[in-house]
Each structure stands twice: as C-alpha cells, then as structure tokens.
Lab assay of single mutants.
Amino acid sequence: MTGIVKWFNADKGFGFITPDDGSKDVFVHFSAIQNDGYKSLDEGQKVSFTIESGAKGPAAGNVTSL
C-alpha cells in the first residue's frame, strides 16, 4: 500500500505514515526503511509499505520511497 509520511523523528528513529486509503495512521520504525545509508523519512514524503504485526499493534514494514 502507499501513503504519506505524517512525521518522522530521526533522533528517536520512528514516526507515522498516513495511508492513502484513509485508514488509521501506521507506526513506522527506522529498521523498516529499505534504503541504503541513513534510514530516515521526511514529512510529506510518498512511500510504499506493507502492514506488519508489531508488538504494540500494526506497524509499517518494507518501507520504500516513491
């Protein structure tokens, strides 16, 4: 699925993605970002991701920028 990064705190390594389908915002951890180098996201960035079952509920996985 796709969405827009609502916010991401690079110091803490997590944030939230707002899915394009209008569903509830999804937690994203830096370890789910699939790019080389520094793993961070920018507010407003368009991303593709999967929904994984995290310890505290749904979380984004396999996050790639579009």
Rank of each mutant, 00 (worst) to 15 (best):
N9L: 07
V26D: 00
F27M: 03
V5L: 04
F14W: 15
I17P: 00
P58A: 10
G61P: 02
K24Y: 09
V47I: 05
E43N: 13
G37N: 10
F30I: 09
N62T: 09
M1T: 08
D21K: 06
L41A: 02
A59N: 10
S23E: 07
D36E: 14
T2W: 06
T50S: 10
I4A: 06
Q34C: 13
T2Q: 08
M1C: 10
V28D: 00
G15A: 02
T50M: 09
P58T: 12
N9V: 05
A59G: 06
I33H: 03
W7T: 03
V63M: 02
F30C: 10
H29A: 04
S23C: 08
W7R: 04
T2P: 04
P19S: 04
S23T: 12
D21N: 11
V28L: 07
S65H: 11
P19V: 05
Y38Q: 11
P58F: 13
E52F: 14
Y38N: 10
A55C: 12
K24P: 14
K56A: 10
G37T: 10
G3S: 00
S40N: 09
I17Q: 00
G15P: 00
A55H: 12
Y38A: 12
L66I: 13
N35E: 12
P58G: 06
K39P: 09
F8Y: 12
N62R: 10
V5N: 01
F8K: 01
E52P: 03
N62V: 08
D42S: 15
Q34D: 09
S31E: 05
V47W: 01
D36A: 13
Y38L: 12
G15Y: 02
T64H: 12
F49H: 01
G54P: 04
K56R: 13
Q34W: 08
K39F: 09
D42P: 09
T18S: 11
A32G: 07
I33M: 05
D21W: 07
M1S: 08
N9A: 09
P58D: 10
K56I: 09
E52D: 09
D21Y: 07
A55K: 13
G13C: 04
P58K: 11
I51D: 02
E43D: 10
L41Y: 03
S65C: 13
I17A: 01
K56P: 08
S23G: 14
V63L: 05
F27G: 01
N62A: 09
I51S: 04
K56W: 15
V26P: 00
D20R: 05
D20A: 08
K39T: 08
V63Y: 01
T18F: 06
L41W: 04
A55D: 12
T50D: 07
V28M: 05
F16G: 02
G13M: 04
F16T: 03
E52L: 14
A55V: 13
P58Y: 11
N62P: 02
S40W: 14
D25V: 06
S65T: 15
V63C: 03
I17V: 05
F49T: 00
K12I: 09
K39N: 07
S31G: 06
D42C: 15
S23I: 06
S65D: 10
A32H: 07
D11L: 15
P19F: 04
N35M: 15
L66C: 09
S65R: 14
K46E: 07
F16S: 03
V47P: 00
D36C: 15
S23A: 08
Q34R: 11
S23N: 08
D20Q: 06
L66Q: 08
E43Q: 15
K39R: 11
K24R: 14
Q34S: 12
G57Y: 08
E43I: 14
F16K: 04
K46C: 14
S65W: 13
I4S: 08
G37C: 13
G44C: 08
A60D: 01
S40K: 14
S48C: 12
V63G: 01
F16M: 07
D21S: 07
N9P: 02
G44W: 05
S23M: 07
S53L: 14
Y38W: 14
E43M: 15
V26E: 00
N35G: 15
